[in-house]
Simulated scan of single mutants.
Amino acid sequence: MSEQANAPTPTAPQGAAASAADPPLWDAIVADPAVPLDPEVTQMIVDDQRRWTRTWLYPVARPVSRMLALLIVALKRITPVRWTAHRLMDRLCLWFLRRFVSPLAVELLIRHFVIETNLLNFIVRNTATPIEPVALRPVNLAGLGDHAVIEHDINVYVVLAALDMNREGPLDFTGLDMPPLDPEPGRRRLMRLDIQTALCLMNLPFAACLTPDEYRRAVHSMRFDDSILSILAELTGDPVFLRWQNGDLSVRADSNTDVPHAVYRHAVICEYAHAHLVRLAARGEG
């Protein structure tokens, strides 16, 4: 046998072997080329995911929130009096966000309101839909009050109900900007929850302060994500939007939804679609 055949096989450095055995999860997520987000936005999402509250509190908060929300809605359905407390819901929401939720999570939440409005307005501007563009674009934490949560859900229904897919001319990519956002980072907080744990806790006053029909309407609005992605794919001629469909049927109303999980997925999908529209705008397509 040759000396080369008898030579010992080179071994990888100890550090490299350790790295291969324990790959950097979060670095891989940020670098994943299949994620269409700007790296800064992906890093924001990852930083929020890495909070200790996401690791330790969320697994407990998620099933408890789902059970209590179902109980609240069931009790309200058998109650003969239908009452709402929209103003109380807004106040509880702002109080909770200012004192118990991290500024990063608050910023991600405000971003979602702006991004969904941008998506709906892109559809309105590029079709013959006979309505004015959606006006809900909060830029600070206070903007999440004044019925913003309810308006946010209703806007989806209004646009889809009036939708007229006829259009002429090139696509209008205006209105996809993200204004500077103020999540009140300097405010003293008792705790700094991640956004998923915060959604679990915020789901309870939503269930309590809305009528069962209002709550069901808000939850069902997320089932139109697949419809919006299909509309965007048809308008732009780009099938990439269809990759993020979940297979939810808007014609089926589900009464047993994991609402916080659905809201989080809905927000991420909107981020994906918005980022891809921005990319198409930069390419000058349409």
Results as ranks from 00 to 15, higher is better:
192 R>T: 01
161 A>K: 14
237 G>W: 09
229 L>H: 07
166 N>C: 05
236 T>A: 11
217 R>A: 15
205 P>C: 10
257 T>A: 13
227 S>E: 14
225 D>K: 11
175 G>A: 05
169 G>S: 10
199 L>A: 11
277 L>E: 01
208 A>Q: 10
238 D>C: 12
184 E>D: 14
205 P>V: 01
211 T>V: 04
249 L>K: 13
247 G>S: 03
211 T>R: 08
215 Y>M: 01
215 Y>Q: 05
167 R>T: 11
257 T>S: 09
197 T>E: 06
155 N>M: 06
181 L>F: 00
176 L>D: 07
240 V>C: 09
218 A>H: 02
175 G>M: 06
154 I>M: 12
155 N>W: 05
187 R>K: 11
243 R>L: 13
163 L>E: 03
206 F>A: 13
215 Y>C: 01
213 D>S: 12
178 M>C: 07
230 S>F: 04
167 R>N: 12
151 E>D: 14
268 V>E: 00
173 F>D: 01
185 P>H: 03
259 V>E: 05
205 P>I: 02
181 L>P: 02
235 L>Q: 06
149 V>T: 13
242 L>D: 10
268 V>D: 02
246 N>Q: 15
271 E>P: 00
217 R>D: 13
247 G>D: 08
231 I>T: 02
157 Y>I: 01
248 D>T: 10
233 A>M: 08
191 M>L: 15
277 L>S: 10
249 L>V: 09
259 V>T: 12
150 I>V: 14
147 H>K: 12
148 A>Q: 02
184 E>K: 07
180 P>G: 06
148 A>W: 00
226 D>T: 06
148 A>E: 00
194 D>K: 01
158 V>Q: 11
238 D>A: 11
247 G>K: 08
179 P>N: 07
225 D>C: 10
254 D>F: 03
233 A>F: 07
210 L>M: 13
